[in-house]
Computed example of a mutant assay.
Amino acid sequence: MNSSGNGRMILNTYVVAVMVFLLLPIVIIVPLAFSSDASMAFPPSGFSLKWFEAALSRPEFLDAFYLSTRLAVVTTAISLSIGGLAAYALVRFRFRGRALCEALFLSPLIIPTVVIAIALTMILGQMGLLRNFWGLVIAHTIMTLPYAVRVLAASLSEIDRDVEEAALVLGATPARMLFHVLLPLLRPGILAASIFALIISFDEFTVTLFVAGPGYYTLPIEIFNYVEFYSDPTIAAISTLLVALSCVAIAIIERIVGIRNVFK
């Protein structure tokens, strides 16, 4: 076998190993969610749906889910609005300080999350926004904004500026060009950025742990609080429900625009 064949075999082996590593927790967690055991033991000794009933009957989990969903939706809307304007400026214009602005928008990707969490705790505390919903929105927007800027900038770079100019030359107002020309062309990028923002916001833990307070515990924080005192498969049931919701979301996206169109 030549060196090219050996390299391909090593690459394939590496990809399979990474996929197994990523999927193994799901393979273990999903059967545990249907276990009849009183504690998390693998493999389960019997089948039961009682842990789903237990998870859905606990008001703290339901309240945390509603808060996480509301927070993720608001954060995504703000991130897309700010990220879209920033991406348009970074892609369409050349100005002094452009590289610095881009680095500033993308900095949460490289700065340690705990550093951002401590800084936000100090700043939001001085602003009186610590331990409330809008403080969480600000914190989550900072964490999701880099993904919105990066994805939308990549999508904009694939759209020729001549399309926008042609619409304006043909008599379209800037607003009409935006809503009838640019945004439809950006739909896959907007959807991809929305997915990233929703997932990052919904799963954000470290920053939320510093910023959240009583009455504002998101689902990851509530799960963390639960596993401190209990070791039953209720957490496995919640995780399985979240996996199922993710699969439904992916199916809907595939139905509307297609996964390949979102990430091409």
Rank of each mutant, 00 (worst) to 15 (best):
L22Q: 00
L186F: 08
S57Q: 10
A54I: 00
F95N: 13
V16K: 08
L219E: 03
L185E: 08
S81L: 15
D160R: 10
L32F: 00
M143E: 08
V18I: 15
L136Y: 02
N12G: 14
L67R: 13
V207H: 00
L56E: 05
P25H: 06
Q126P: 01
R8F: 12
S45W: 00
R176C: 06
L11M: 12
T141D: 00
R92F: 08
V169P: 06
L191M: 15
V73E: 13
L120I: 10
S68W: 09
P108H: 01
R92Y: 10
A167P: 07
D160I: 03
I253M: 15
W51L: 01
M127L: 15
A77C: 08
E222W: 01
G189L: 09
M40Q: 12
S35F: 01
T121Y: 15
I256L: 11
D203R: 12
T75H: 04
T141A: 03
T75I: 01
G213M: 14
L32E: 00
P25N: 11
I78L: 06
F210S: 08
M143A: 10
T75A: 01
A148T: 06
L109D: 09
A77K: 01
L241R: 06
I199H: 13
L24D: 07
I253N: 05
V30M: 10
G189R: 09
A55V: 05
G7T: 12
N132H: 13
L24K: 06
L241M: 15
A55F: 13
Y14R: 04
V257M: 07
L130A: 09
T218E: 14
E60R: 12
N225T: 11
L219Q: 03
V151A: 01
R70D: 02
L120D: 11
I256W: 11
F105Q: 04
F224D: 12
H140T: 06
I26A: 15
R161P: 02
K264G: 13
I118M: 14
A33P: 13
F133S: 01
M40D: 01
Y66H: 09
L219P: 04
L104G: 14
F229H: 09
P31S: 07
S231E: 12
P220K: 07
I256A: 05
S35P: 07
A175S: 10
I10F: 11
M9F: 10
I110E: 04
P43G: 07
A38M: 06
I29N: 03
I238Q: 09
L178P: 02
V211G: 09
T206Y: 02
E164L: 08
I195R: 12
I26N: 04
L85F: 07
T173F: 07
L32P: 00
